[in-house]
């Protein structure tokens, strides 16, 4: 059997003496779409940041079976990409230029983009429907458009593992659904491992099946959303009795918070 695309083994992160992550372990296979859920401060973003090397950690992160810590910056960037919740990126760049830069890990400073690079970028543009705003500056985009561009850049970086931090934030319901579908397409069609951090429980259930629940830096649940334990974990983690109901057989159940426990 081949190595999992991503494998996290007893990950521990401490920032300024506070334990943010404690003994977190999980594997992600090729083409898997994993959602990480949890209340604010559970360590979700920290988990993504340590996987892509932004934060020092104890433990082991393996990408394609190779320890991430031993990879050079370029090689790591050809294996994992990260879309963080950007609030203050420099918006004076054209979308087109920004997308070209996603081929950075594969280029020597003096090399121009090849036809293959162009093809990969164009596929990403097509998937995310970014074509209409290629000639615009990032600062002129709406929240939804900007999110699309950031995801497009991540797709064009063409890494087997993509990490998304709250990709649905600040999006209207229709955009959320579109972005959610796009995320499941990335894993389904492109056979990439997508790890998404969100607190939108219902969208998460709609667009991915495997859930990881974090609470206080510990992994509380790792399994399918249809598992009865999943709802129980949500109840204890959010200290709230969730009510789930189903009114159409072709849709997953809907959860909403009931009384506090």
């Amino acid at each position: 059997m081949s190595d999992p695309a991503i494998s996290v083994l007893s990950l521990n992160v401490e920032i300024d003496g506070v334990k943010i992550l404690e003994n977190v372990s999980f594997n992600g296979e090729k083409g898997e779409n994993i959602t990480i859920l949890g209340p604010n401060g559970a360590g979700k973003t920290t988990l993504l940041k340590s996987v892509c090397g932004l934060i020092p950690y104890d433990g082991e992160v393996k990408l394609d079976g190779i320890s991430a810590g031993s990879l050079s910056h370029h090689v790591r960037a050809s294996k994992v990409s990260f879309v963080s919740q950007h609030s203050d990126i420099e918006g004076d760049f054209f979308v087109e230029t920004f997308l070209d830069l996603s081929r950075y890990p594969y280029k020597k400073p003096w090399e121009r983009l090849s036809d293959l690079d162009r093809k990969i970028i164009n596929e990403a543009i097509e998937m995310t429907e970014c074509a209409p705003f290629l000639k615009r500056k990032i600062s002129s985009l709406s929240g939804g458009e900007r999110q699309k561009v950031l995801i497009a850049a991540s797709i064009a970086q063409d890494t087997p593992v993509i990490l998304l931090d709250e990709p649905l934030n600040h999006l209207d319901p229709v955009q959320r659904t579109k972005t959610g579908k796009l995320i499941s397409e990335i894993s389904g069609k492109q056979n990439k491992t997508v790890v998404t951090v969100t607190h939108e429980i219902n969208e998460a259930i709609q667009f991915s099946s495997r859930m990881i629940v974090l609470n206080g830096g510990k992994l509380e649940f790792d399994g399918l959303s249809s598992d009865p334990l999943f709802k129980q974990t949500l109840d204890t983690v959010f200290k709230t009795k969730f009510i789930s109901f189903k009114n159409r057989d072709d849709l997953p159940p809907y959860f909403f918070p009931g009384e506090e426990l």
Binding site: G53, H86, P109, Q157
Partner: peptide, 24 residues
């Protein structure tokens, strides 16, 4: 400057994005 021209593009956009693209 020319050697680092793409690194400079990415750094001037955002340091997290630069890191994610593989800039040392």
């Amino acid at each position: 400057a020319l050697y680092f021209h793409r690194d400079l593009d990415l750094l001037s956009i955002d340091s997290d994005i630069a890191h994610s693209r593989g800039v040392n």
